[in-house]
Simulated assay, not measured.
Amino acid sequence: MEYRVHQKETFYFTLKILFTVVVVFFAVSALKNLTALGAEAAGPTAAVFVFYAVFIWLFIWFQKVLLIGHLKGNGVEITASQFPEAHEAYRKIAEGLQIRKIPPLFILQEGGALNAFAVRFSGRNYIAVYSEIFSMYESAPEIVQFVLAHELGHVKRNHLVKRFWTLPSAFVPFLEAAYSRSCEHTCDRIGAAFCGEKSIQGLILLAAGKDIFSKVKVESYIESAKTNNTAAVKFAQLFMSHPYIPLRIRDLQNQ
């Protein structure tokens, strides 16, 4: 399946690699300089550095343990015997992306929220789709498939692995969010490669909800977003992991 990687994804990932190397280099250099001053000076500082590094790693690990526990403990896994049509469509998307180890797919009920996510834990990928979206499979299968293809796109592009190994670059303001937004654009394009025009409806669904999304006039929505694109809106975007939905729609329209 052919798709175009968003032009900024490679650029921001290159910056993340660069800053990761820089951060690690200065950290190692600082420890070496402290060591040269003697054990009395180096010991406590190195201990503090190691403590915080381990604390951050354990915090991230613990958060993932809770998430995977919630996913496996409460979620409904989509299999060949549980929602077989959706499972077959999911399998075909994964095969189309040449993903050899297809991630387990779960449905989660989250109080009517519209979301889906990919997570990696202990060397294995998992994908979850919220029930409010999956409940549309019979009436609008292409929209649900767009969401599933988008999440599989994160697996295909190794976004979760790349973010883990470039974690030190998160110290650079706004870089992590910018990289995340470019990844979202790429995954939208992957979803569109499978679902075509229905992909835009999938994004409108996230903006308006499943009860009224079909009534939203796309062009009016985009024009209104342009009018509302004030300095405050642009500034807020710097902190966000996902692009504004009108920007995501415009990107797909320009493909």
Rank of each mutant, 00 (worst) to 15 (best):
Q201A: 14
K215C: 00
G191E: 08
V23C: 07
G196K: 13
T227V: 11
Y130G: 03
G123S: 02
I78A: 03
L148W: 00
T166G: 05
P173G: 10
F194Y: 10
V65C: 11
C187W: 04
P246W: 04
Q145G: 02
K215P: 03
V54H: 04
I60W: 07
H242C: 09
S139R: 14
Y90M: 09
A42V: 00
F83E: 15
I68D: 06
L67K: 11
E197R: 14
F26R: 13
E110S: 09
S224M: 13
L15I: 08
A94S: 07
F62I: 04
C183M: 13
S122Q: 05
R91W: 08
V23R: 02
F83T: 07
R4K: 14
Y52Q: 01
E77N: 02
A178T: 04
Q98L: 10
I190N: 00
I107L: 15
E9T: 03
V218A: 08
L203E: 12
I127V: 15
L167G: 02
K198Q: 14
V161F: 12
I200F: 07
Y126P: 05
A47G: 07
G38Q: 07
K226G: 03
I222T: 09
Q109I: 01
I102W: 04
E40Y: 10
L175D: 08
Y130F: 15
Q63T: 06
R4G: 00
E132Y: 00
R100M: 03
L152W: 08
H150V: 08
A193W: 01
A47Y: 08
R163P: 03
I93M: 10
S220N: 14
M1I: 02
W61E: 11
L31K: 08
K162L: 13
R189I: 09
G153V: 06
Y221M: 12
K210L: 05
F55R: 02
T166W: 07
K217M: 00
P84L: 01
E176G: 13
V119P: 02
R4P: 00
E110L: 13
L58V: 12
A118V: 05
R100D: 06
R181I: 00
Y244M: 09
N228V: 06
F146K: 00
N158E: 15
S139L: 12
L105I: 09
E95V: 10
Q98M: 11
S169R: 03
V24R: 09
I68L: 14
N33I: 12
I249K: 06
T186I: 03
R91D: 08
G43D: 04
G69A: 05
A36S: 14
E151Y: 04
E197H: 12
W61D: 11
T45D: 07
I17W: 10
L167T: 07
M136G: 05
E138M: 12
L108F: 03
F13G: 03
Y244R: 12
V216N: 05
H150S: 10
I68R: 01
G69W: 09
N125V: 04
K16R: 15
